[in-house]
Design a protein around this nucleic acid. Structure first.
Lengths: 106, 106
DNA sequence: CAAGTAGTCAAGCAACTATTTAACTACAAT
DNA sequence: ATTGTAGTTAAATAGTTGCTTGACTACTTG
């Protein structure tokens, strides 16, 4: 118990990023073209609803839902419910930390 | 024919990095803890032989060989043979390009 | 209430992946 | 030539993944 790996993705600290398994999980979330396009869409800055994303990327809502779970479990997206709409936004802090986690890379 | 996706990983240009599929493939190569540790080891700078890597990470040479194929196919490592020894080094240019490929991420 | 929209869940499938083991090639040293 | 080291390959297995489909909940609007 109190295993760091059990911590919720939203509580990821800069410390967790040093763990190969956690970083691999984030890269794994980025390792599918569809998910990468979702992240790129969200990287443009705005909050976007699930159906807007599905529409924009020409995928089913069920497929977006499926991929959004992977992204959320990696901690890469945050979700905010408003009525029947669920807005998705990028966890820029975590993504930046992960992309900058190769210390010896100049 | 002359499909950009058919190009050899070693010939990856900065242009290919704009393609979601190619970027996803690179992230996919980074999505396994063992491969991530290989990349981190190589990121320290030196050329390292396969058996040294296998020894250092406490994995079998066969398993390293398996993973090194994935990394080489993604273009992330270069290999140079010298006698019976094969030295591996990191393609820093490609890794950097990939990690910096989120233009809207400040 | 009924119909439409937004989102979720679970089953099923084909395709892929990580790992182990064992058999193999190639080079080096004695 | 034999032994040892470095590396590759293929088969087998267990686990995972991406996607589709259909049924489901929840909220909204006529």
């Amino acid at each position: 118990m109190s295993n760091p790996k059990d911590s919720h993705p939203l509580q990821l600290s800069a410390r967790s990023i040093e763990d190969s398994e956690q970083r691999a999980k984030i890269f794994s979330a980025l390792s599918d073209p569809t998910r990468l396009r979702i992240v790129e869409l969200l990287a443009e800055g705005e909050e976007v609803s699930g159906s807007e994303i599905a529409n924009h990327l020409d995928i089913s809502l069920a497929l977006f839902c499926h991929h959004s779970r992977t992204l959320a479990e990696a901690g890469l997206i945050q979700q905010r419910r408003e009525g029947q709409t669920k807005y998705n936004s990028l966890n820029r802090t975590l993504l930046k930390a992960c992309l900058e986690s190769f210390p010896s890379l100049i």
